[in-house]
Amino acid sequence: MSILLDASARVLVQGMTGGQGSYHTRLMREAGTAIVAGVTPGRAGAQVEGLDDVPVFDTVADAVRAADANAACIFVPAPFAADAILEDAAAGLDVIVCLTEGIPILDMLRVMPRVRASGSRLIGPNCPGVTTPGDRVKVGVMPWNVHTPGPVGVVSRSGTLTYEVVQHLTNLGAGQSTTVGIGGDPIIGERFTDVLALFEADPDTRGVVLLGEIGGDDEERAAAYIQQRMTKPVSAFIAGKTAPPERRMGHAGAIVSGASGSAPAKEAALRSAGVMVGETPEHAARLLAARLP
């Protein structure tokens, strides 16, 4: 078992005809992901180099009808990405992974109520995607070779930090059930608490590493959830201890405003919920690996 994506995933890629889209679609496929369609408006029937056997459709609805897709991966440029998400939600896809960085907040405010009403789970935007090593499924851009199957769930606001910690876990012999990058934007679909609930319910996940950063209160909400509901061990690393206040640090959502959103406050909330907080990403990986039942 795993969360969000397993061997039954049939993935359509929006923006597969573009440079990043085609490149990373080939890598997803090399990992073992079933890529069943590409979608680019106005490019139906197009052939993509190295993906000749993957049909390209004008719309998500066409791709679902013809290729039975149940998940989407979005590489569409920011001005068009909100519409891409809406198309997936309208088609009733189970999981929508949106990698696009820079989608306007006002677009996301318009999109989120419709995603929630649809029952689709949105991962991102501005995220690296979801990887389930045991089922050879990767939707997004995470480096496949650092992963190995195992019992650790990873959930993160940062792509790079995810890879860093997955590499350390793998080196420690602690493989992963599923790794989830929820994205670095202020408005995202699934949040820490949603993904923690999935890991808590997944029989194959025996512990979780949570990778947070400054900004917002998602880590504080995660701490409250862990304290009240979680039975599995959790370790964490919070990036941005050295970040100056009132500056946006790489991610649109990574900003300390006034007294809220600072790394020490998040670490304190997590510690008081019984979470093992690491000094470095490697330390967080070691803390969890040592506690695996």
Binding site: L161, E164, F237, G240, T242, A243, G250
Partner: peptide
């Protein structure tokens, strides 16, 4: 951002 933290850690 974590890179800055690790530099400071060292």
């Amino acid at each position: 951002m974590a890179t800055m933290d690790v530099i400071q850690h060292h």
